[in-house]
């Protein structure tokens, strides 16, 4: 019974959402709107669940003096301060929340993203080797596109940006589309297996 009910819910919900896509008539259009509203509510509750879980894990770590407990203090304090600032004084421009957002959250987030610049360089240096004919072709295209997408390319040769754009618009796009079609078929097949209950591992167990 423990497995049957979730499978039944999955089947009914899946079939209803599938059918409503093709039937505009009531009550199917209303069902879609209803499911949409329920999902919005569930998404908000999931956020609350996540925050609760985070507080629980770090409080336990702090209490037990687990490894890195000092960072748990930082995390819990940050969570508290941002929450109180936003709820107490609002999120409008010029407020305390806004100040923390622009002066702490934004630089931290940008810094992590900026790591990519360094990692792209080190990964390229390490991995881009002309080992085979295909790898050499890939290398040549990568260099052309990289140059074509910055003003330096235009400075070296004014046709380079066009060449880079051509590689992006034709061979690259053909490859992307092929991958997307394969993914779409995979999604349909997986969704079908899940709706019909053939695939159950995500529910835990066989």
């Amino acid at each position: 019974m423990k497995k049957q009910i979730p499978l039944l819910i999955t089947f009914v919900a899946g079939m209803v959402m599938l059918v409503q896509y093709f039937i505009p008539h009531r009550p199917f259009s209303e069902v879609y709107r209803l499911f949409n509203q329920w999902y919005l509510v569930v998404a908000v509750f999931a956020m609350i669940l996540g925050i609760g879980n985070l507080i629980k894990i770090h409080s336990v770590r702090l209490r037990r003096r687990g490894s890195g407990w000092q960072y748990s203090i930082v995390l819990l304090c940050s969570l508290g301060v941002m929450g109180v600032a936003g709820l107490g004084w609002g999120i409008e421009r010029g407020g305390f929340f806004d100040y923390l957002y622009w002066n702490m959250y934004y630089p931290l987030s940008s810094t992590m993203f900026a790591l990519l610049a360094f990692f792209v360089a080190s990964a390229s240096y390490r991995a881009f080797r002309a080992r085979t004919a295909e790898a050499t072709l890939l290398l040549a295209s990568a260099i052309l596109v990289m140059l074509g997408r910055v003003p330096l390319g235009n400075y070296l040769w004014d046709r380079l940006p066009l060449l880079g754009d051509w590689i992006m618009s034709y061979p690259n796009m053909a490859g992307q589309r092929a991958i997307m079609i394969g993914i779409a078929l995979g999604v349909v097949s997986t969704s079908l297996r899940i709706i019909l209950g053939i695939e159950r591992t995500y529910l835990a167990g066989r």
Partner: peptide, 15 residues
């Protein structure tokens, strides 16, 4: 532009 140029240089250098 300069960063792209440098990465290309790295790739060519390594190869």
């Amino acid at each position: 532009s300069v960063a792209h140029g440098l990465i290309i240089f790295f790739i060519l250098f390594a190869n």
